[in-house]
Design a protein around this nucleic acid. Structure first.
Length: 188
DNA sequence: GGTATGATTGACT
DNA sequence: GTCAATCATACCA
């Protein structure tokens, strides 16, 4: 189980480190295969404009959750990071489903394992993440993070769905994973 | 008070 | 490839 102090580092560094780690919520989840980094001095970040009611958790201590509603429909889960509560977080974008497959299938109304957690909104539906998780510590139930046990090949690319700072390569993924929300652009 | 926008997804041409 | 769903937030008057 990763302690909350593990999250007290730069967003891009944590986003890369979390690839291959295991995330469970109430025992349901899998291996993190895709993340994105967001920081205060980042025009694409929710924290860019300063602290508001919605992003308050981003400005709280590292190692806590920041959950927000996207497009009025979906939920997205972030791990708050950074060393001095400056508004950094890592968006968890995709999981390789490992635990609670039937529960996730039921919640998603879907059979295809590849699409069960392939996207921030999809994995939140599969893990039943919502408003109630906003601000909760990540090293206590219902959350559980476990470090990866083997080396992995991590690839980077531009973040998805943003209109600003699109040149920053702060999306990270597990190479060759079939569980990514979208493929990474080929290098070169 | 009104209106435009979005760290998305699923359905459809 | 395009587009609507749906609503909290942000921004302007």
């Amino acid at each position: 189980m990763l302690p909350r102090s593990y999250f007290a580092r730069d967003a891009a560094e944590l986003a890369r480190a979390l690839i291959g780690a295991t995330l469970l919520v109430d025992g349901v989840g899998g291996v993190i295969v895709e993340t994105e980094a967001y920081e205060r001095e980042d025009p694409a970040s929710h924290s860019f404009g300063g602290k508001t009611n919605r992003n308050a958790a981003m400005f709280g201590p590292a190692g806590h959750a920041y959950a927000y509603r996207s497009y009025g429909i979906h939920w997205c889960l972030n791990a708050v990071c950074g060393r001095d509560q400056t508004g950094s977080a890592v968006l968890i974008r995709a999981l390789e489903p490992r635990a609670g497959l039937m529960t996730m299938r039921a919640r998603r109304g879907l059979e295809d394992v590849r699409k069960l957690c392939a996207g921030p909104g999809r994995l939140c539906e599969a893990l039943a993440i919502s408003q109630v998780h906003d601000g909760l510590p990540l090293d206590e139930p219902p959350f559980s993070f476990q470090d990866r046990s083997t080396d992995v090949v991590v690839i980077a690319g531009p973040r998805i769905g943003i209109t600003r700072a699109t040149e920053t390569l702060w999306r990270f993924g597990l190479a060759e994973s079939p569980f990514l929300s979208r493929p990474f652009p080929r290098l070169g």
